[in-house]
Structures are given as structure tokens and as C-alpha cells.
Design a protein around this nucleic acid. Structure first.
Length: 569
RNA sequence: GUCCCUAUAGCUCAGAGGAUAGAGCGUUGGCCUCCGGAGCCAGAGGCGCAGGUUCGAGUCCUGCUAGGGACACCA
């Protein structure tokens, strides 16, 4: 089902064109027609301010334009009325009969209710988490993880074939340090007097890994250098990360090692292509460097040239180093190669989920793609603000962090997911760990899930009382009351909510809508009884059909957010 | 210093240029013998400040104030 506002929008367009055709309205270019859900009951279900916006181009009063739209409005089975309200709104009321019939439509659609075919099955990729395997995922990674996974869900719901990818780097100084840190822990576990390297990884997890290693190889590795330790640690840590992610319902389709773009030489090819297009120069300092920067270079005795990407030609405020003076590329170059690799794998849409600290990186990669003539518009970057935890500052190396596992232990998968989703990505998230624990008894997660639980309870009761499974089939839906209709209308918003969240890459919209939906549901529950001495059978069957539909919708919305829909709590 | 994000109810946050700005938590008062009370009903409580654009601004623009982040030959 296409979103109703979109359907109405098309009808308005037709109405305006028809009015222009017969001269009721003058000819002008059609603007963007907005259709919004009504805020008040007497405004119908949807409304459009289009006539207000047209006043100037049409040279007519908004009310007259609205009247013309109403007059020329095409027949539509889902609409009951089109009304004009001052100062020029056009309001639409859904047909009650049509709304009632949607109960069956939604039940029939089931798991596919609300799905859209925007992507036409084309390939999309969402890259997220992408933490290097130096330790367990800390709580700061949670937001990007949940955000990325839910964005992937949204793309799937909108008709894309989605791959979830995790990009990592297992080379470099940090990984060497990790190897040396594990080596120290290993020697310690053998009773040796070893010290962690300076700034080494102090977390207890390496002690655990060292114990496991000792159990496997005994003292055989005592003379080994950092490399096998690095590899062992990396493998173990990836396992930990995957296990943790699985606990919040996240599973990656692919892990991409940065090393790949070195192995296939593409990182160097990218450099040569940039060079051939004139985007590369070699210098000790960037072109047009300010005086203080030159001073700094002198002080640090920089004499060997680095390789610079002339990103200023593409609107950057300064050029960026792509190969350090020691000959090693900076992160930017492999990252550009990586994105070219993604495009080469046929993804029509690529979404990168990063913390806002990666904004420069994201921009530089985009400029790199642009410089080489790739379609950078296929890449969308979703940046999220950080989660803060009161006074607790965390660092992986210092080991004084709360892990994602700890968080899941405390509040559970669904609370983790919902809390991370229930605010927009560019809003700073203040996650008070203590408060989250306290709230776990009284929070929106349970409120939403309880709506599903209540539906399930009804079906259990019906079954226990010996009614047939299809008892409600063919029920007379005209018996449903105003409260039920209000809920069905709300449920029918799923397609538009989905599309809106998808278009804006804003999963929090769904989180808020889910809460809205539950808020329409719960007040009904007390009054809309199914098995009750005063409810006649025909009504009971109609209501059961209604709850069957409600259950579908709650399963859907919870599923989109990656949350479970428990049958009991 | 420059750039990015944020500022809405006591707290945490929604709000898609349109009509009388919403929710959760907290708080105050009420409700419930039948499908799980993790419930329902009602009340109090409001757009950081100053300009501007617009028929219309919480929403767009400028400045100011406050908080977070980025300004590496780290990833």
C-alpha cells in the first residue's frame, strides 16, 4: 500500500490540472504539494495547505483555489469527503467503510504490511560499527550499531536488497600494541614478571584471552614476538564483538578488511588516478599554509615531503595528506579505495554510519570519489552525535569502560535498541546508566510491547475457551466502534511513517510512531472486550478480527526497530 | 580562533514552513470483581536571547549566549 498522503497528493495534482484545463485556475507550474496528517478531529484525517501556497502564483484567494480543488477532485474509494476550511486548507476524511475493510487488508498483508518498492530490489549497503578489533565493543558504539542496523531494516522495508558490512583495520600501531599487550598478559599468566607496554590495553578481557591462550598452547609461545599474539587477540575479540552484536539482534553479512585494498593495489591506483587528474602534489606543508602552520613544521623539523590531495579544488577548506612522509598512506586513501570497491560491487546506494568526529573523513572520501569521477551521491553518510554517560569518560585503552555487553545485561536488548532509536541522530544522547536501569520497569519499551502482549493474551483466552482458530474469519467489521476506527487509522500510517523515516534516514520517527500507536491502543483495551458476558458473539468476532490486525501492526513496528514482540511479559 | 551539531514542560526528548506546539518519566487528583494493572481518566507545567525573510516561523536566514564535537603526516 502506498502512503495515503502520497495518494492524496496525486489526486490534488489531478484536480489542479483539471481546474487549469477548464479555466477555473490559471496556468502555473505545480509546486511541491504537501499533505499532512490532521492535528484535530474536525480537520478530517489529512489536510493540505496547498491552496495557501498557490495564492501568489495563481493570483487568486486561497479559499477560491481550495474550492476549485474540491470541485475538480477525482473520485477515490478511500475518501469520504473533501472539505475546505479557512483560511484555505483542503481537508480529507477517510471513508469509514474503507477504513474498516483495511482490517482484513492488514491481516492479509501480515509481515509485508507497509512494505514499499522504492528500491526495486536494487542492492544497497549499510556500513556501520566498523570498530577495529582491539577490545569488546564499548557502550559508545551502541548508537551507531543500532542506528545502522535499523537503517538497514528501513531500506529492506522500502524494497532494497541490503547488505550489512563491517569495515576494519587489523594492521598498524594500535594492533601491534594489542599484540604486545596480550603477550604481556600471557607471560603474566605463566608467572613471568611482564609489564604491559606503555599506553597498552589494560582491560581485563586480555587477561581472559591470555588464560585461554595458555590453556591452548601452554608455554610454547614464550619466545614468540607480538604477531601471533596480535592474530590470536584479533580472532578472539572479533568473536566477542559478534557475540555481543548478536545479543542486540545484529548480524553482519560481510566483514571487509582494509588490507584488501592494499593487496589488490587499488589504494595505489587511486593515488595515481588522483595524480593524473592533477589533484596530487608533494610538499612539506600544504599549499597556502598559514604562518603558524609553517612555524610548526619548522619546529618539528619536517623536511621530507608528504603527498597531498588538493581537496580545496572541490570546496574543502584545506588540502589533506594522503601519503605521509614515511611513505604510508593516511586513512583517507584506503577509505577512498574502499568506497570505490563498494561501488564496484554494484551497490546503488551506500550508507555509512559514523560518529560526528568522522565528519572530515566522510567529506574527504566524498571529494575523493568526486575527483575521480564517481557518483558520490550514491553515498549517504549518517552522522550521529555521541552518547554521554554523565561524568564517566571512557577509553578502550584505559579499560575503564562500560561495555555494550554490560548495558545489555542491565537493561536488555529491547531497551537498548529503543533508547538508542528514540532520539534523532543529531541530538546529543545523554544516557544515564543508573536511570536506564531504574526506568526499565516503567518505560516506553514495555508500554509498546505490552500492547502486543495484550493482543496475544486475548488469543490465548479465545483458544482456551475452545473457540475455533478462525472464529473471527468473515466477521462483520461494521460493528467496530469509533475507538477501533481511530486505531485502524493510526495503523494505516505505517506506510507513510516508513517512507518518511527512510527518506530522511531517520529511524527515530518509527520509534515515536510506535509509541503513538500504543497510546491509541491501550485506552481501547479496557472497553473493547472480546470474551465478556455482555459482548454478543458477532461483536466479539469483529473485535477479535480487530485485535488480529493490531497484533500484526505491533509485530511489524517492533520488527522494523529490531525489537522482539513478546507474547507474555 | 574557524567549522559542524544542539538549545522546546521539573527531567529525557518528538515536532515534515501551515490550523489551538506533543509524548514518556516525574508530579497532583480520580478510576478498576471477567481477555495480564507493566493499565485507564483528568490537572498543573512551554519554543535560550535579539533581529530578519514569509500571507504564515519552534521550523528558514543573521547575530548573541550556553553545551557537545571537529579542526594531525591518528584511525
Amino acid at each position: 500500500m502506498k502512503p495515503l498522503p502520497q495518494q492524496i497528493q496525486h489526486l490534488i495534482r489531478e484536480a489542479i490540472l483539471a481546474a487549469q484545463q477548464d479555466g477555473t485556475l490559471p496556468v502555473f507550474d505545480l509546486p511541491e504539494i504537501s499533505v499532512n496528517p490532521a492535528k484535530k478531529a474536525d480537520q478530517g484525517d489529512y489536510g493540505s495547505p496547498v491552496a495557501l501556497a498557490l495564492a501568489k502564483p495563481a493570483g487568486k484567494k486561497p479559499l477560491d483555489i481550495a474550492d476549485a480543488i474540491k470541485l475538480h477532485f477525482p473520485q477515490a474509494d478511500f475518501l469520504q469527503s473533501v472539505e475546505v476550511a479557512p483560511p484555505g486548507f483542503v481537508n480529507f476524511r477517510l471513508s469509514e467503510n474503507w477504513v474498516r475493510q483495511q482490517v482484513r487488508t492488514i491481516i492479509a498483508a501480515g509481515e509485508t504490511f507497509g512494505q514499499q518498492d522504492i528500491g526495486h530490489g536494487k542492492k544497497a549497503q549499510v556500513e556501520f560499527v566498523s570498530a577495529n578489533p582491539t577490545g569488546p565493543l564499548h557502550i559508545g558504539r551502541t548508537r551507531g550499531a543500532i542506528l545502522g542496523d535499523t537503517l538497514a531494516n528501513l531500506l529492506m522495508e522500502c524494497g532494497w536488497t541490503v547488505e550489512r558490512e563491517y569495515y576494519f583495520n587489523n594492521a598498524g600501531a594500535q594492533m601491534t600494541l594489542l599484540g604486545n599487550s596480550l603477550k604481556a598478559r600471557y607471560l603474566q599468566s605463566l608467572g613471568q614478571d611482564a609489564e604491559l607496554p606503555e599506553n597498552g590495553y589494560q582491560g581485563d578481557y586480555l587477561i581472559t584471552v591470555a588464560e585461554e591462550l595458555k590453556a591452548e598452547v601452554g608455554s610454547a609461545w614464550m619466545q614468540a614476538d607480538w604477531k601471533p599474539f596480535k592474530e590470536y587477540a584479533e580472532a578472539r575479540i572479533f568473536k566477542m564483538i559478534e557475540t555481543t552484536l548478536a545479543r542486540v539482534g545484529i548480524k553482519f553479512d560481510h566483514f571487509f578488511n582494509e588490507q584488501f585494498v592494499y593487496d589488490d593495489q587499488s589504494v595505489w591506483e587511486v593515488l595515481e588516478q588522483l595524480r593524473s587528474k592533477g589533484f596530487i602534489y608533494e610538499a612539506v606543508t600544504r599549499e597556502g599554509a598559514a604562518e603558524d602552520e609553517l612555524d610548526k613544521a619548522r619546529k618539528e623539523n619536517l623536511t621530507k615531503p608528504a603527498v597531498w590531495f588538493r581537496s580545496t579544488q572541490l570546496g574543502d577548506k584545506e588540502d589533506r595528506v594522503v601519503v605521509k612522509s614515511n611513505g604510508e598512506p593516511t586513512y583517507v586513501l584506503p577509505d577512498i579505495a574502499y568506497h570505490i570497491n563498494k561501488l564496484g560491487r554494484g551497490f546503488e546506494r551506500i550508507i555509512d554510519v559514523f560518529g560526528t568526529d568522522h565528519i572530515i573523513e566522510a567529506q574527504t572520501v566524498a571529494r575523493g570519489l568526486q575527483a575521480l569521477g564517481y557518483d558520490a551521491s550514491k553515498v549517504d553518510v549518517v552522522l550521529h552525535q555521541f552518547v554521554t554517560f554523565g561524568e564517566n569518560k571512557m577509553s578502550t585503552r584505559a579499560g575503564n569502560y562500560v561495555t555494550l555487553d554490560d548495558l545489555i545485561d542491565e537493561v536488555g536488548r529491547d531497551v537498548v535498541r529503543y533508547f538508542m532509536l528514540a532520539r534523532s541522530a543529531d541530538s546529543h544522547l545523554d544516557f544515564n546508566f543508573e536511570k536506564a536501569k531504574e526506568q526499565s520497569n516503567e518505560n516506553p519499551v514495555y508500554y509498546i510491547q505490552n500492547a502486543h502482549v495484550r493482543c496475544c493474551g486475548i488469543f490465548r483466552q479465545v483458544e482456551q475457551n475452545g473457540y475455533p482458530e478462525n472464529w473471527d474469519e468473515g466477521a462483520d467489521l461494521s460493528l467496530l466502534g469509533a475507538g477501533e476506527l481511530a486505531f485502524i487509522r493510526k495503523a494505516l500510517e505505517l506506510p507513510e511513517q516508513l517512507v518518511f523515516a527512510y527518506e530522511n534516514l531517520a529511524p527515530h520517527q518509527i520509534a515515536f510512531w510506535a509509541l503513538d500507536l500504543a497510546r491509541v491502543f491501550h485506552p481501547l483495551y479496557d472497553d473493547v472486550r472480546v470474551l465478556h458476558s455482555e459482548v454478543p458473539e458477532a461483536l466479539a468476532r469483529a473485535r477479535l478480527q480487530f485485535y488480529r490486525m493490531a497484533r500484526v501492526v505491533f509485530v511489524r513496528v517492533l520488527g522494523i526497530m529490531g525489537m522482539t514482540a513478546p507474547e507474555r511479559m
